[in-house]
Computed example of a mutant assay.
Amino acid sequence: MPLHKVIYLSNNAKLYLWKITEDFDALFNQIRLKDSSLARLQTMKSENHKKGFLAVRMLLQHNDYNDFDLYYDAFGKPHIKPQGCSIKDVEISISHSNDFSAIVISEQKVGLDVEQIKEKALKIASRFMDVSHLENLSKEEQIKKATVVWGIKESIFKIKNEKGISFPNHIFEDDFNFEDKKATATLKFNNKEEKFKIQFDSEEDYIFVCAFESIKN
Score class of each variant (00 low, 15 high):
Met1Tyr: 12
Pro2Ile: 11
Leu3Ala: 13
His4Pro: 04
His4Tyr: 15
Val6Asp: 06
Tyr8Ser: 04
Asn11Phe: 03
Leu15Gly: 01
Leu15Ala: 11
Lys19Leu: 09
Thr21Ala: 13
Glu22Ile: 12
Phe24Ser: 10
Asp25Glu: 13
Asp25Thr: 11
Phe28Asn: 02
Asn29Val: 13
Gln30His: 09
Lys34Ser: 09
Asp35Gly: 04
Asp35Pro: 06
Ser36Arg: 09
Leu38Asn: 12
Gln42Met: 13
Thr43Arg: 14
Thr43Ile: 12
Lys45Gly: 04
Lys45Ser: 10
Ser46Thr: 05
Ser46Met: 10
His49Leu: 15
Lys50Glu: 06
Lys51Asn: 11
Phe53Ala: 01
Phe53Gln: 03
Leu54Thr: 10
Leu54Gly: 01
Leu59Tyr: 09
Asn63Pro: 00
Asn63Ala: 10
Asp64Trp: 13
Tyr65Asn: 04
Asn66Arg: 14
Asn66His: 13
Phe68Tyr: 12
Leu70Met: 08
Tyr71Leu: 15
Asp73Lys: 02
Ala74Thr: 09
Pro78Arg: 12
His79Leu: 08
Pro82Thr: 05
Ile87Val: 12
Lys88Ile: 14
Ser93Asn: 05
Ile94Glu: 01
Ser95Thr: 07
Ser95Gly: 03
Ser95Lys: 06
His96Cys: 06
His96Ser: 10
Asn98Arg: 09
Asn98Leu: 10
Ser106His: 04
Gln108Asp: 08
Gly111Pro: 07
Gly111Ser: 09
Leu112Glu: 03
Leu112Asp: 01
Glu115Tyr: 03
Ala121Cys: 04
Leu122Ser: 10
Lys123Phe: 08
Ile124Asn: 07
Ala125Tyr: 08
Ser126Pro: 00
Met129Asp: 02
Met129Ser: 08
Met129His: 13
Val131Gly: 01
Val131Lys: 02
Val131Cys: 14
Leu134Gln: 09
Leu134His: 06
Asn136Arg: 11
Asn136Thr: 05
Ser138Cys: 07
Ser138Lys: 04
Lys139Thr: 11
Glu140Gln: 09
Glu141Phe: 01
Lys145Cys: 07
Thr147Glu: 08
Thr147Cys: 15
Val149His: 02
Val149Arg: 05
Trp150Asn: 00
Ile152Trp: 09
Lys153Gly: 05
Lys160Leu: 06
Lys163Asp: 00
Gly164Gln: 02
Gly164Leu: 00
Pro168Asp: 11
Asn169Ala: 05
Ile171Met: 06
Phe172Gly: 01
Asp174Leu: 07
Asp174Ala: 09
Asp175Lys: 04
Asp175Cys: 07
Phe176Ala: 09
Ala183Cys: 10
Ala185Cys: 13
Ala185Gln: 03
Asn190Phe: 02
Asn190Pro: 04
Lys192His: 12
Ile198Thr: 02
Ile198Ser: 00
Glu203Asp: 06
Asp205Phe: 15
Val209Tyr: 13
Ala211Glu: 03
Ile215Tyr: 08
Lys216Leu: 12
Asn217His: 10
Asn217Leu: 14
Asn217Glu: 15
